[in-house]
Structures are given as structure tokens and as C-alpha cells.
Design a protein around this nucleic acid. Structure first.
Length: 477
RNA sequence: GCUCCCAUCGUCUAGCGGUCUAGGACGUCGCCCUCUCACGGCGAAAACAGGGGUUCGAGUCCCCUUGGGAGCGCCA
């Protein structure tokens, strides 16, 4: 048996790669990789009016960012229009397709009357058996499939199970538009066949298309690939995830500071499960993935859970690796470019690196990481947040002066030494450590919360730290 | 309207007739840890949509109801 598995991800370039498409790509990828097969990429650009170059770029970038690699070069569907027409010629010659001269207006009327009579809106097949003598010469025909009118079309779906669609509910679909361009329905079948696709994994919104496509396969005398129609992803409100309901492009998740690995893990967990496993590596996902474990009900997208997962991933990422990831992501984060400039001019990259362990512990996303690092970016004199301002009572400022003196004397400038100094000051003053640490935090970071204060001291360095302390301590009553 | 699909804690899910007084995760709420915030630890509240069957036995199988969703283009 040398029949290796071939899947494909086939987005239409009419917009960015949204989260649902990303998951479809992931499932195709996981399926192929788990079975040692291939995942092909095909750009469904047969809708010339709506396909854009920008969308193609966005989709490719999105896949790359998610680290979902495909095999071979992307196939552009429109470029294969000649081949698609060829297939139609054959169906025409074999009497499996026919010319339809119905006008758009007639079609519209058909739909309207069907609707009014409570019937499903379908093409009535009026040109199905018309002799050549009736063919008008003032307009070009569309080519329709001569679909079976009786019986049923059965889809043996890997996820949905056996789905039966009565043929009377499927009308004669258009294969070739009157302008001679192939429709999606035709192109998909011909391309999947030519590309040797063995498994089609896509959203359930294509389920009835599968039945129509099965009829085309039949008309061409080809055997259809196995199908797996996965459930859709809904928005937090349970409504369909549309562009108006928070269906963001994957690049938006990059801008929100998510890690590709975390997003992959989260997406994999939406609709698929491996027992109670929640956090797993991509390698494990590949090893465990089984299309049989994909459920049939739609899932809601929960960004809070994604954030939690992302936090896990950030904490689990080794510091040097996270630092590299963070640096690379910075240009995409809000305020990231400004941060890079500041870090460059102050030479505080090493300080950031030093603060990273403390920072990553407190951040769920790279955006939060950047926010946490703000004390490294700010310039003296610091503008204090109101909450920090409140911490700096007259007593606190007196304590700061003492703290400044004592810290100035420590050697080396390191966390244990700093801690010893602060603790002794607190003890002498008869206050708890917090009473000294909090004002210190306010003076050093301008905020009420930050990484461990001794780590902050170290990251900032002796000179900057003492200066910031002095800034606040100096203002004695 | 017609066709098809779906239905376990707020959310994602485990469960593939008896081991379920239904498990895990996120979120929520307590407590502990503690220089703040996080992290971490411990604990709590929280679900089998409803009704009929089948069976010795149903969250698990069947039917109906209800509630969701998808599709019905010379879009993809």
C-alpha cells in the first residue's frame, strides 16, 4: 500500500485568514502529518472580482506565522481554468451536462415563485432536454450538470457519519458560467482529483456541497476523496463567527501578543480532544490526532481561555527563546516600535533581558509583557500612576530617603544585598517589609504592581535606581 | 419555507450501556503562599435541554418536542 494521504487547505483570497480557516488548516495539517502524508495549499481565486493579492499575502503570512507548512507550491485555481473547461467538454459530450440559456432574471423569478409556493428555491431544469434548434444565438449559455433527479446522494463522512441528501433537493448546478469561467463547484472537483487529494477536511458549511461535488465526480467517472466536515467555530455570544462578530484574522492574534504554539494548542482543542489533555506540544498533537476524535458540535471561541493557555506557554518558554520571540514580535505589538527605539537609545536591552523572568511570570500575552516592561522604557522623572502616588505618603518618602542611603552602600548591586538592605531599614523603622517595598516600587516603577522589587532594582541598575528613589525622596514635606 | 447537522457545568470538553453519588480545563468564589501583581498549592459552587421508549440497567441506543447551527447563487 503506497497510497499516502494527501490533504489540502483551500482558502479563497477574499479576505484574511480568520480563526475558523486557521483551524481548518490546522486539522488538515495535523491529519496529514500524523499519517505521514502531505498537505497541499490551493488558492481558490476563481472569483476574479473578489480575489485580491493582499488577501493571498495575508493568508500565506498567517499560515507561516502559525508555522503550518504546506507541501509544494501553492496551486492557483484560476490558472487551471483551461483544464476545468476540458472536463466540462467531456461531460457535455457524454450527455452529463447541458447548455442553459436561462437569464438572470428568469432565475430570479424561479426563485421567487418557488419561495412563494413554499418550495425550496431551485433551478427547474427548463433547458435540460431542449434540442439544439431551440438554442438562442443572442447570448452565451452557462453549462449545467445534468444531475440525477431521483434517488439520493450519500456522503460517508469521517466526522459527520453517513449523511443522506435526496437528489430532488439538489438542482442542476452551474459548471461553467456564461462567460466561460469555471465555478467553484467544478474547480474543486477537478483540482482535488488532479492534485491527488485523498482527504478533504473542511467546515460543515460545505456539507451539502459535498453532495453536489459527489455528483460531479460521478459524472466524470472519478472516485471521490474521503470527506471530513468539521464543525464551525462560533463567537462568544454563540452566534456565527463572522467578521462583525469578532472573527479576526490570525495577524490580529499576533498583534495581541499570542504565541503561535499557544494558538495552535487552543485551536486544536476546539472540536478535537485527546481525553483530558489540555496542554500539549505540537509533536504530541501530531502523534495523537485522529479524525475520529473530532466532535460534531460547534464550539465557541473563548479568548480568556486562549490567554490562560498563552500564559502557560510564555512561562514554559526558556528565557532566551522568549526574549528572541518577543523581539521578533515587537514590531507587531501596539507601541512596539516606540519601545524598540527607546531600548536602543537607552541601551536597556540587557536590562529587559534581566527582567524577563520576572516579567513573563506576570503576563498572559506579549502585549502584557511589554506593558510590564514599561518601567524600563520610561524616563525620569517618572510620572506616577494615581495608585502609586497614594503609596507615597510623607512617611513613605522619609523611608525612601533612608532606603536610598542604605542602597547606595550595597556591594555588589544584586538582589540578595538589596533585599538585606531593605529588610534592615524596615526593621529599624519598625515597619513590615511591605511598607518599605511598596513605596520603593512606586518610586522605581511609577506603579503599584511590578515584578519582585529586588529584581526591579537589579534590572534598573544602581545609578538609575538611586536617581528614581531620590526623585521621590527629595520631595520631603 | 425546504434539506441536513448538533445538544454534558457560564465556556472548551471526558464519557464510546453497568466502574457516573458525571471527570478535567478556563472562568468564578474562598483559603494558603507573599514586598505588590502574578505564579503555585488547597478547596467550593457549577452540567447530562424536556418527554417518551428499548434494556435487568441509559449521559451513553431509538423516537418526538424544544433550542441552536449550516446549506439552499452564473460566491467560495
Amino acid at each position: 500500500m503506497s497510497d499516502t494521504v494527501v490533504t489540502r487547505f483551500a482558502p479563497s483570497p477574499t479576505g484574511f485568514l480568520h480563526i475558523g480557516g486557521a483551524r481548518t488548516a490546522l486539522f488538515n495539517w495535523l491529519f496529514a502529518r500524523s499519517l505521514g502524508g502531505k498537505m497541499l495549499l490551493r488558492i481558490e481565486d476563481t472569483d476574479r472580482a473578489r480575489s485580491t493579492e493582499a488577501a493571498i499575502t495575508a493568508i500565506l503570512d498567517g499560515l507561516k506565522w502559525l508555522e503550518l507548512d504546506w507541501d509544494g507550491e501553492p496551486v492557483f485555481q484560476f490558472a487551471r481554468a483551461g483544464r476545468h473547461r476540458e472536463a466540462v467538454e467531456r461531460m457535455l459530450a457524454e450527455g452529463r451536462a447541458y447548455r442553459c440559456y436561462a437569464t438572470a432574471q428568469e432565475l430570479e423569478e424561479m426563485r421567487a415563485t418557488a419561495q412563494a409556493e413554499g418550495r425550496p428555491p431551485r433551478y427547474d431544469g427548463r433547458w435540460r432536454d431542449r434540442p439544439e434548434a431551440d438554442w438562442p444565438t443572442d447570448r452565451a449559455p452557462a453549462i449545467r450538470l445534468k444531475a440525477p433527479t431521483e434517488g439520493e446522494t450519500v456522503i460517508d463522512d469521517l466526522v459527520q457519519g453517513r449523511v443522506v441528501i435526496p437528489n430532488k433537493d439538489l438542482d442542476d448546478l452551474v459548471l461553467l458560467r456564461s462567460d466561460g469561467t469555471p465555478t467553484y463547484m467544478l474547480a474543486v472537483v477537478v483540482d482535488d482529483h488532479d492534485m491527488g487529494v485523498t482527504h478533504v477536511i473542511r467546515g460543515v458549511d460545505h456539507l451539502t456541497n459535498a453532495a453536489r461535488q459527489a455528483q460531479i465526480y460521478d459524472a466524470m467517472g472519478w472516485s471521490a476523496p474521503r470527506m471530513a466536515h468539521i464543525p464551525l467555530i462560533h463567537g462568544p455570544d454563540g452566534a456565527k463567527l463572522s467578521k462583525r462578530h469578532g472573527a479576526l484574522g490570525v495577524e490580529a492574534y499576533r498583534e495581541m501578543g499570542f504565541l503561535p504554539a499557544a494558538l495552535r494548542n487552543y485551536l486544536a482543542r476546539l472540536g478535537w480532544s485527546h481525553g483530558d489533555d489540555e496542554i500539549f506540544s505540537t509533536e504530541q498533537a501530531i502523534e495523537w490526532f485522529d479524525i475520529a476524535d473530532v466532535g460534531r458540535s460547534a464550539a465557541r471561541f473563548d479568548q480568556v481561555k486562549l490567554q490562560n493557555l498563552n500564559g502557560h506557554y510564555m512561562r514554559a518558554t526558556p528565557d532566551d527563546e522568549l526574549m528572541a520571540t518577543f523581539r521578533a514580535a515587537l514590531p507587531y505589538l501596539p507601541g512596539g516600535l516606540a519601545a524598540i527605539a527607546r531600548l536602543d537609545e537607552t541601551g536597556r536591552w540587557p536590562a529587559l533581558e534581566g527582567a524577563l523572568p520576572g516579567l513573563k511570570e506576570r503576563a498572559k500575552t506579549l502585549v502584557e509583557l511589554l506593558d510590564g516592561a514599561r518601567f524600563l522604557l520610561d524616563q525620569r522623572p517618572l510620572s506616577l500612576e494615581p495608585a502609586a502616588e497614594q503609596l507615597l505618603t510623607p512617611e513613605a518618602r522619609r523611608l525612601l530617603a533612608l532606603l536610598g542611603e542604605r542602597l547606595a552602600a550595597i556591594e555588589p548591586w544584586a538582589a540578595p544585598e538589596a533585599e538585606a538592605a531593605v529588610r534592615s531599614v524596615a526593621e529599624e523603622a519598625g515597619v513590615k517589609l511591605g511598607a518599605a517595598a511598596q513605596p520603593l516600587r512606586a518610586a522605581l516603577t511609577g506603579r503599584k504592581t511590578s515584578p519582585g522589587i529586588f529584581d526591579v532594582l537589579v534590572a534598573l541598575g544602581r545609578e538609575e535606581s538611586l536617581a528614581r528613589i531620590a526623585d521621590q525622596a527629595a520631595q520631603r514635606p
